[in-house]
Nucleic acid binder design. Structure first.
Length: 600
DNA sequence: ATAGGGTTAG
């Protein structure tokens, strides 16, 4: 490193050399106090403008999630070069600030600094998770203009980013892949992963078989493709035939069996795997939790703690998310306890997951107490709390929280507005909801998307304003999807609007011709209106098209035995007692004013 | 730059 010109004073030289040693590893340093000390020495030595030192400082701050300090360090440099800009872009990406990453890129251009071959892979990373095909296309255009495709990192990143942008993106990725003069194993792996993710497993397999040299990533990618598609027989076959397996291969299999609901097989592999890490434990524990298997999940969580593994953010978030999904308040509280016990300095993300878990499990008090105790909140925190209140019918409280959010200077995002509309729906505040919807673009700069229209259809529909809801569906700037029509159909059922229901089903049948749910919903609506002729017509139509509706079933696990129930089912040995209990529950419900649909 | 788990969304 050429940091200085030779200096005569021996003490000075040694001090310089000492600093130089510290600087060489600065970008890997994770101790904030140490970094601050080194920063002070840098300033003293007047090295803060040095184009070799400043990037290391920025990287160090980024690693400690100190983006304010990182940006400060950047601003201290008068003449930033591409390397320095790249470092800041990467820092923003690593700290999940994709918008700031783009802003830095634009600033770089307006300051006349040309991007280099390192800039684009970082920038493309900022696109992932945003599902922004347009952004990837824009970056692609830049790359074409400046011509950095000779560095294989650039087209490889492009293939990866494109293939995360839906079916259209995968097409673009394939085109690029085909046109690449030189491909390495990463190009192949990225392409295979993209195809698998887009559901084109056959094509992914074809490339996998065709590729000249496979590494562990290739095998694990195709394995995961099968696992995610629920094709565990294919996955197992490949797994057996692998030249070698690592912890990722085993974990992928465990995850696949969990998702397929084969918990015995998942556990067998989990117990058999030669090396387990935090991710393996997470997969198995949250697998149990997602299936609602409280005892298994809890005892495995205990075992993980016994193995003295220190849970990271990912472990906690995954397990809490699984608890939220299946209402395992007990496990959620246990996780919360262990966070408090171990003095783990919960990140904002973990607290968000806690708020969401408590809210979804119906414990709004605990959700509130976590939320209020947070020292640093982000928009997700507010959204989770707001959604929790809305979900449980506390529409007014949700709207109050929304005001507080704005007072505290947080910008509502698209998810916030979904929460607001949802709150209005659940509180019966139809007029307020309409107001929010029509002013969201003006007030918050958020253009309504299909999800917002979905909320509106629900709001109007539940509120009995079916004609308005239908008009809105027909005037939407995008094509209504299954969810939109389905929401409207639900509203038709609620308000017994047979005529509209018939029209809605006509649309639904085009969108998903083989789905039996639409017909059975229509049949229910006719039945509710007492139009039995139409009911049998629908049945006939279903039979003639060969569509069958499997009857809905509920199941409950008691003492390791699963009991399944379908409507009017009398096959259970204790069915007399069960129906007696249902009658008693209905009596109790009627006393508090509820009228069950089936008993009307 | 590529592989396994990950908070808010009708």
């Amino acid at each position: 490193m050429q940091l200085y010109t030779p200096i005569r004073t021996p003490t000075w030289v040694s001090r310089r050399r000492l600093l130089e040693e510290k600087l060489s590893d600065l970008h890997k340093c994770t101790n904030l106090n140490q970094i601050k000390q080194i920063h002070a020495q840098i300033l003293k030595a007047n090295l803060h403008q040095d184009l070799f030192v400043a990037p290391k400082l920025i990287a160090a701050f980024s690693l400690c999630r100190q983006m304010v300090l990182a940006v400060n360090a950047f601003d201290q440099v008068q003449e930033a070069n591409a390397h320095l800009y790249n470092t800041l872009i990467r820092a923003h990406v690593q700290n999940s600030q994709p918008l700031q990453a783009f802003a830095t890129f634009f600033e770089m251009q307006s300051n006349g600094v040309y991007p280099d071959n390192f800039t684009y892979p970082f920038l493309l990373k900022a696109c992932s998770g945003q599902s922004c095909l347009r952004m990837v296309q824009m970056i692609h255009a830049h790359i074409k203009k400046f011509g950095f495709c000779s560095d294989i990192f650039v087209p490889n990143s492009l293939i990866d980013s494109y293939s995360k942008c839906g079916s259209f993106g995968v097409k673009a990725a394939r085109k690029l892949f085909k046109e690449m003069g030189e491909r390495d194993v990463v190009s192949w792996n990225s392409m295979i992963g993209g195809l698998a993710k887009a559901g084109e497993l056959g094509e992914a397999r074809r490339l996998f078989d065709e590729m000249p040299e496979k590494d562990m990533v290739s095998w694990n990618t195709i394995l995961d493709g099968y696992a995610k598609a629920g094709e565990m027989n294919h996955a197992f076959e490949l797994f057996e035939g692998m030249p070698e397996r690592n912890v990722v291969s085993w974990s992928t299999m465990v995850s696949g069996y969990c998702k397929a609901g084969d918990m015995d097989m998942a556990r067998m592999l989990f117990d058999k795997m030669p090396v387990k890490n935090l991710v393996s434990w997470t997969i198995m524990i949250s697998g149990y939790a997602q299936k609602g298997l409280m005892n298994e999940a809890v005892s495995l969580y205990d075992k993980m703690e016994e193995a003295v593994l220190k849970p990271d953010d990912g472990v906690l978030i995954s397990i809490l998310a699984a608890c939220a999904e299946s209402g395992l308040l007990g496990l959620g509280q246990k996780v919360h306890d262990s966070i408090r016990r171990t003095g783990f300095k919960g990140s904002t993300q973990v607290s968000n997951a806690l708020v969401d878990m408590y809210a979804k499990c119906g414990s709004l008090d605990e959700a509130y107490s976590v939320f209020n105790g947070m020292t640093k909140r982000d928009v997700v925190s507010w959204n989770a709390m707001l959604q929790g209140l809305a979900m449980h019918g506390h529409g007014e409280k949700a709207l109050q929280l929304f005001s507080r959010m704005k007072v505290e200077g947080f910008e509502p995002d698209r998810v916030t507005l979904i929460g607001i509309l949802c709150a209005c729906t659940h509180a019966g505040l139809v007029e307020e909801g309409v107001q929010y919807f029509y002013s969201m673009e003006r007030n918050y700069g958020i253009v309504p998307e299909i999800e917002h229209y979905g909320c509106m259809i629900d709001l109007l529909g539940r509120g009995g304003r079916l004609k308005e809801a239908f008009r809105l569906v027909n005037s939407m700037p995008m094509e209504p999807n299954v969810i939109i029509w389905g929401t409207l159909l639900g509203a038709c059922r609620m308000h017994n609007d047979v005529d509209l229901a018939r029209q809605v089903v006509d649309h639904l049948v085009i969108l998903e011709p083989s789905d039996p749910g639409n017909f059975s919903m229509l049949s229910n609506i006719y039945a509710a209106a007492g139009d039995w002729d139409s009911v049998s017509n629908v049945r006939l139509r279903m039979r003639s098209t060969g569509i069958q509706k499997p009857s809905g079933a509920s199941s409950i696990e008691v003492h390791d035995e699963v009991h399944e129930f379908t409507v009017f089912d009398k096959s259970h040995p204790k069915s007399d007692k069960i129906y007696q209990m249902i009658d008693r529950l209905v009596q109790d419900l009627k006393q508090v004013g509820y009228v069950p649909k089936a008993y009307q």
